[in-house]
């Protein structure tokens, strides 16, 4: 709960502010006039049924899709990301469901993929600074609470939870301003899920802003400050996780029992 107070101080400028985003695919209105706000240091979950528009919204925010209408501000600036790379350059790191790890490279190489440290810069023949990367990797994993016994081991032989840990640690490094997690535990077992949730908790303690897409309501209530609910492409509302009962979120998602939702609003 102390976290909540620290947030109030920074409430003046949200990390992400989305206004009136709309997106149409052919005859399908995927998103209609959607608003969203993520404060600095806040952990936010985006929930909704399949086809509610979660993925589309996340893709627009991370540069993989473009909105037909509406705009968003990130870190105080209005942005129109043309590619995931551009979003990354401005501080939005995405952990994809596929994780985007190179199986044949070791943990250190994956953490630094595309952002290697060099001893000597000679274009494509630049000489890697392997010692520096190993040291930094160890510090990064420690900071994010990701436990990997052997930094020199290939990703190929690792469990799903370890892979997810590496992908999250990579996103958390590099001075990113916000991390987008797309179904971070969808493919994991119970124990692995617990480990990954611990890592997300650690990010909270360090003030890293997180926007997470999840189907798992138990997890959402455990991990985030605010829950935003999408239904049929419209943002139905936002609730503080500490002040709302799961039943209300469920009815917001399904639209089955709007009356019971209003009682708590």
């Amino acid at each position: 709960m102390e976290q909540m107070n620290s947030q109030d101080a920074s409430v003046t400028e949200p990390m992400l502010k989305v206004e009136g985003i709309s997106k149409r695919f052919g005859g399908v209105q995927a998103l209609q006039d959607v608003d969203l706000q993520v404060d600095t240091g806040e952990h936010v979950a985006l929930v909704g049924d399949n086809g509610a528009g979660k993925s589309t919204l996340v893709k627009i925010l991370t540069g993989a899709e473009h909105a037909d209408d509406g705009s968003f501000w990130f870190a105080g600036e209005e942005r129109h990301f043309r590619s995931p790379l551009e979003a990354r350059r401005h501080g939005i790191e995405t952990v994809y469901q596929t994780l985007a790890l190179a199986d044949h490279l070791d943990v250190v190489a994956n953490l630094f993929l595309g952002r290697e440290r060099y001893l000597l810069r000679l274009g494509p023949f630049s000489v890697l600074n392997r010692a520096a990367m190993k040291t930094e990797a160890r510090a990064l994993l420690e900071r994010t609470g990701v436990q990997i016994p052997d930094l020199g081991a290939m990703i190929m032989g690792m469990s799903g939870g370890q892979r997810q840990g590496v992908a999250i640690a990579r996103a958390a490094g590099w001075g990113s301003k916000m991390i987008v997690l797309d179904e971070p535990t969808a493919a994991l077992g119970v124990q692995e899920t617990a480990k990954v949730e611990e890592i997300i908790h650690t990010l909270k303690d360090q003030g890293v802003t997180v926007l997470m897409v999840s189907h798992n309501l138990r997890q959402v209530f455990d991990l985030v400050d605010t829950i935003w609910v999408l239904r049929h492409g419209r943002m139905v509302g936002a609730r503080k996780a500490a002040e709302v009962r799961p039943q209300e979120i469920v009815s917001m998602i399904t639209g089955a029992d709007d009356a019971s939702g209003l009682e708590f609003a």
Binding site: L101, A102, D103, L105, A109, L113, E116, P124, S126
Partner: peptide, 13 residues
């Protein structure tokens, strides 16, 4: 080198 590292990365994923 960068080239070696990227070659493995491209081939791997």
């Amino acid at each position: 080198t960068k080239l070696g590292r990227y070659s493995y990365a491209i081939g791997s994923n």
